[in-house]
């Protein structure tokens, strides 16, 4: 096919625009990869000369920041387990049972969840947590995250389970399985790809969250990385770019690793039903 001159011009223009936008998005990432290995990193992009691990060594020496990574892991994993387990059971019940008005329940919860995890609810959450006596504990952070993420997780999973034919469990029960056996043997493995999506989504949410742990925790040795990252700011509030870059890279690795692991193990693909 031959293009007319104006068409050709339009194509070139469009491609150029797309390239510029692409570069704009790529720049921070390039910085993110180069800066940690540069002893003189600044906010501009520069190829490290020489490449060095000095930034990382300094970061590893910062006990508060290292402890933060562990705390992030405790809070994220705890929250993810709670969200995934509770959302799976709740979504399964909401999808399979014939409770009247069950979809209203889901929508109301979904509506409130944006309130619960929102900034507006911070004062009441603070009051509740402190009156229950859970202030400054991992449990408090985990519970508040779970409460905020659960409705959306339930919504995602319910939708997923609705799409799975009931006949899987029905055939298991006719074959002699109890409802619990049918759930664990047949339903759960089929739902697993949906659960994996929720796990990744919840992990990323908790891992990157700043406000909730910042408000609910006091002790330095409980703070997650999202808070601990502020130890790489000078007294005056200016970032120490070199260390910040190195720590950021370390901080982002678990999320990347989780994505890689999940896509290797589960491929982000779904079994679905068997089509005839």
């Amino acid at each position: 096919m031959r293009l007319s001159f104006p068409q050709l011009l339009a194509r070139i223009g469009f491609s150029a625009l797309a390239a510029i936008i692409g570069i704009l998005f790529a720049l921070p990432l390039i910085w993110f990869i180069f800066a940690p290995f540069n002893a003189r990193a600044e906010l501009g992009i520069a190829i490290p000369d020489p490449w060095t691990l000095q930034n990382f060594l300094t970061v590893f020496g910062n006990g508060f920041a290292m402890r933060g990574l562990l705390n992030s892991l405790i809070q994220s994993v705890g929250g993810v387990i709670l969200v995934a387990a509770a959302a799976t059971l709740a979504a399964y019940a909401l999808s399979r049972s014939s409770i009247p008005g069950k979809s209203i329940v889901t929508y109301v919860l979904l509506l409130f969840s944006s309130v619960v995890s929102g900034t507006a609810a911070m004062v009441p959450i603070f009051l509740i947590v402190s009156s229950v006596g859970l202030m400054d504990t991992h449990i408090a952070v985990i519970l508040v995250f779970a409460g905020g993420l659960l409705p959306t997780a339930m919504f995602i999973l319910r939708d997923f389970i609705d799409g799975i034919p009931k006949t899987y469990e029905e055939s298991a029960m006719v074959a002699g399985a109890s409802p619990v056996q049918a759930f664990f043997d047949v339903a759960l493995p089929v739902i697993r790809p949906g659960i994996v999506v929720v796990v990744v989504w919840a992990f990323v949410n908790i891992w990157g969250s700043f406000l909730i742990p910042f408000i609910l925790l006091r002790s330095d040795d409980l703070m997650p990385s999202s808070v601990a990252i502020y130890s790489f700011y000078s007294e005056a509030g200016t970032p120490i770019v070199t260390l910040l870059a190195a720590y950021s890279l370390i901080y982002s690795l678990p999320v990347v690793a989780l994505y890689l692991f999940v896509s290797w193990k589960f491929g982000f693909r779904f079994f679905g039903g068997i089509k005839a």
């Binding site: 006949t167 055939s171 043997d185 089929v190 068997i274």
Partner: peptide, 14 residues
């Protein structure tokens, strides 16, 4: 103590 064959077969995909 019954058996049933379903229209969509309901074979467990995993």
């Amino acid at each position: 103590q019954i058996s049933m064959v379903f229209q969509d077969y309901a074979l467990y995909p995993h």
